[in-house]
Amino acid sequence: MQLPSLFSALGLALVLGLTPLWALADDGHNHGEAPATAAGPALPRFAATSDLFELVGVLDGQKLALYLDHAGDNSPVKEAQLELDIAGARVTLTRVAEGEFQAALAAPLAEGVSPVTATVVAGTETDLLAGEIDVHAAAHAHAEPAGRRNALVAGAVGAVLLALGAVWGLRRGRAARVGGAA
Rank of each mutant, 00 (worst) to 15 (best):
L24D: 05
D26F: 12
D27T: 13
G28P: 09
H29C: 08
N30T: 15
N30G: 15
N30D: 11
H31M: 08
E33A: 10
E33V: 11
P35C: 04
A36G: 08
A36E: 15
A39P: 06
G40N: 13
P41H: 07
L43N: 13
R45N: 14
F46W: 06
A47N: 03
A48G: 07
D51E: 13
E54Y: 04
G57N: 06
L59D: 02
D60Q: 07
L64G: 00
Y67E: 14
Y67L: 12
D69K: 03
A71I: 06
D73S: 04
N74Q: 12
N74Y: 12
N74M: 11
N74P: 05
P76F: 02
A80V: 04
A80P: 00
A80T: 00
L82P: 00
D85C: 03
T92I: 13
T92P: 10
T92Q: 13
T92K: 11
R95E: 03
A97T: 06
E98P: 01
G99N: 01
Q102D: 15
Q102N: 14
A103M: 07
A104K: 14
L105V: 02
L105H: 00
A106E: 15
A107G: 04
P108G: 05
P108C: 09
L109S: 03
L109A: 04
L109N: 00
A110H: 10
P115W: 05
T117V: 05
T117S: 04
V120S: 03
V121R: 09
A122G: 01
G123L: 01
T124D: 15
T126S: 14
D127A: 05
D127N: 00
L128H: 12
A130S: 15
G131K: 00
G131D: 03
G131W: 01
E132K: 10
I133K: 02
D134H: 12
H136V: 13
H136I: 11
A138L: 01
A138M: 03
A139D: 10
H140I: 07
A141L: 05
A141R: 04
H142D: 15
A143I: 10
A143N: 11
P145D: 14
